[in-house]
Simulated scan of single mutants.
Amino acid sequence: MADSFSFEAIGTGWRVDTGAALLPGQRSHLLRLAEEYDALYSRFRTDSGVMALAAAGGSLPLPPHGADLGRLLRSLYELTGGGVSPLVGDPLAAQGYDAGYSLTPTQQPAPARAWNDVLTWTDDGLALREPAILDVGAAGKGQLVDLMVDYLRAEGHDDVVVDASGDMRRAADGTITVALEHPYDPTSAIGVVGLGTGALCASASNRRAWGDGLHHVLDARTGRSVDTVVATWVLAADAMTADGLCTALFLTDPADLATAFTFDYVLMYSDGRARCSAPLAGALFS
């Protein structure tokens, strides 16, 4: 790659690699995309759009890409029987993953409120009938990856990789080999996959864990951290979809998701077993 641009955004590290040099204005635009997205959806800053809804309910206009995110989250909500939900923010905060990162549970686990009881998400924006903390972390980081890739391609870059700490999308010829980091040992891998033009996203319960068995992947139906799956990887055409499916695979069988999405996957369970789609463009190590 001719150029590499690293920065911090939405609470994680990013790296953008391009086959041609990034212009200063293009770097600035990438940072602006991240800031605008964070200002809409972050539940860790008091001035964001979703935190205004958390205080008083009401409506929040969204840019055009908000409709895509809403449709994906609604589809995952239905396919998982409510397990994946943007209304999981309140249960997450109650278990200690709150705006102040207290990491101290304040309530017993409880289900998130039902989508139809509280939330309306249209092509123009979203609305809450009552105050609630929304969390779009199931697919939001992946969508921001897509927004950056789409912008760079529109700017004429035809050799691009955007990597947001485990969620990446590539637009280039050929294929690269990517290692699948072992969730219990970051110095080793459980396998490798080939990534051409498309996205590879990963999710692991150990990335944001605290207390006894508490981590950031909750089942919205119960408000409890998932304890059967410890890591997921998904290959899909875009990062928003791959990111969302990574979360959904903690909560439902891949066959349920395959009725609506085209993807490849790798799952690792808490007992050490691994499972993958067949055929997989890669290999798992024994």
Rank of each mutant, 00 (worst) to 15 (best):
A2D: 13
E8L: 02
A9L: 10
T12M: 11
T12R: 10
W14Y: 13
R15L: 05
T18F: 00
G19H: 07
A21K: 10
A21F: 09
A21P: 06
G25D: 13
G25H: 14
S28C: 02
R32F: 01
Y41A: 10
R43T: 08
G49W: 09
V50H: 04
S59D: 12
P63W: 03
P64T: 13
H65C: 14
A67W: 08
G70H: 13
L73A: 13
L73D: 11
R74F: 03
S75A: 14
L79V: 08
T80P: 03
G82F: 08
L87Y: 07
L87F: 07
P91G: 03
L92Q: 13
A93D: 09
A94C: 12
A94T: 07
Y97W: 15
G100R: 10
G100Y: 02
G100I: 00
Y101K: 07
S102W: 01
L103K: 11
Q108F: 04
A110Q: 13
P111G: 03
R113T: 11
N116C: 08
V118P: 00
W121L: 10
W121F: 08
D123M: 03
G125C: 12
A127R: 13
R129Y: 04
P131G: 07
A132R: 00
V136W: 07
G137Q: 12
K141D: 07
V145S: 03
D150Q: 10
Y151A: 07
R153H: 13
A154G: 15
E155S: 14
G156K: 01
H157R: 04
D158A: 11
D159K: 04
D163N: 15
G166P: 01
D167T: 01
R170A: 08
A171P: 01
D173E: 15
D173Y: 02
T175H: 11
L180N: 03
H182G: 00
H182D: 15
P183L: 02
P186N: 15
S188N: 13
I190P: 00
G194W: 00
L195C: 12
T197R: 14
G198W: 09
A199H: 05
L200C: 06
A204R: 09
S205E: 05
N206T: 15
R208V: 10
W210N: 00
G211N: 09
D212W: 04
H216A: 08
V217N: 00
R221H: 04
G223A: 05
V226T: 14
V230Y: 02
V230I: 15
A231P: 05
T232F: 12
T232G: 06
W233Y: 09
V234I: 02
A236C: 10
A236Y: 06
G244A: 03
L245R: 05
T247G: 05
A248F: 01
A255Q: 11
L257K: 04
L257T: 03
T259C: 04
F263V: 07
F263W: 06
M268E: 14
Y269K: 06
G272S: 02
C276A: 12
S277F: 02
S277M: 05
P279Y: 13
P279Q: 12
A281F: 09
G282R: 01
G282M: 09
L284Y: 01
S286M: 04
